[in-house]
Design a protein around this nucleic acid. Structure first.
Lengths: 185, 185
DNA sequence: GATTTAGTGTACCGATCTGTACATATTTGA
DNA sequence: TCAAATATGTACAGATCGGTACACTAAATC
């Protein structure tokens, strides 16, 4: 058992929770889909909530890594990168596995602002905001914080509408709007 | 029992589902919170899903009524009304009962695009988009459809971030961004 | 006044929920 | 090779899930 069962569980649970939802996925289904025994799961985690938190940590790490890296791959200057956000977003929407933002869904299912799942999801959004804020600052624009917040509105809105409409059109609209906002800044 | 029990159920169920979530609210909790017997509920509705659909219909009717009426109250010309969208949004965020968008949450819990709950939620967003599109058309702007879609991105993004951040700041950011977009159109 | 209608309360069905107990198997390292 | 560490499978507890059966009650209508 070299490749830690704990990590294997978290990786596989991520897929299931993302596809099926958190409350809709019972522990028995998790056993069936991961091939890991329930006994093992509860040796690594005290509760289902702890598993969800670990899943969200992995998702945050993977997503931010991919997202930022991809932006830096396809654009050079910080100003171009602000716009590239929306190209990368579009790429994501066009992925066949795209099923929306895991953190928006987590907050929808765990609404209590004191709930650790809720808090951790909010932190993810905060960290992405800070990344965009850095880009805006590097771009030498006035009021980079305000621009970053506006671009994040477009990003979140695009995710929601891409899910609702079942296509990636929202990505193109977001890029067009971002172009205007960046030009105005 | 003049005031129909069915409507009473739907009204009260709306509050519970909005506060607690759909999957997290069992039928027994619905009985406890509405004071209506389970037998009665299942005489009016065949399944829990049917209750949810009725709740979403009421929410759609109430929300669109309030939203559009309020916009038309606080602004006169169609161009001013496009901006007023975000003042009304802000009002909503500042409401103590604000707990995000019921339709975004519904789609988060019922992800299957073929699910009637999912479809009905998407329809709500579509109808709001059409209302904003009408405003943009009346304002005589070029490409009103594109502007309307961009403003809706801001609206959905603001809702998500208002929930995530636990405050109404996103409303102000959305209004600032909308001002830029409308000016550019 | 009798009958239909709408609602109630309770008890229950089988399934599923999170989580545990326990005895067994497999792997790992000394 | 042998012991410790990690797995596993099964069975189950106690609660809750959506939904039904049934006997009863209040009210409206004829």
């Amino acid at each position: 058992m070299r490749p830690n069962k704990r990590d294997e569980l978290v990786r596989k649970a991520l897929d299931v929770f993302y596809r099926e939802g958190f409350n809709a996925t019972g522990m028995d289904k998790l056993v069936a889909e991961t091939g890991i025994s329930k006994t093992s799961m509860y040796k690594h985690f005290r509760t289902k909530e702890d598993i969800i938190l670990a899943v969200l940590r992995l998702r945050d790490e993977r997503f931010r890594n991919w997202f930022c890296r991809r932006i830096e791959e396809i654009a050079e200057g910080p100003k171009d990168r602000l716009l590239a956000i929306f190209d990368v977003l579009q790429e994501w929407f066009e992925t066949p596995e795209f099923k929306g933002c895991m953190f928006i869904k987590a907050v929808s299912e765990f609404q209590d602002p004191e709930n650790p799942i809720h808090i951790q999801s909010a932190t993810h959004k905060q960290m992405l905001l800070e990344y965009v804020e850095d880009l805006a600052t590097q771009a030498g624009l006035q009021n980079p914080a305000a621009l970053a917040r506006q671009l994040m509105l477009l990003k979140e809105g695009a995710i929601v509408l891409a899910v609702m409409q079942g296509n990636a059109e929202a990505g193109r609209d977001a890029k067009a709007a971002a172009t205007s906002l960046i030009a105005a800044a």
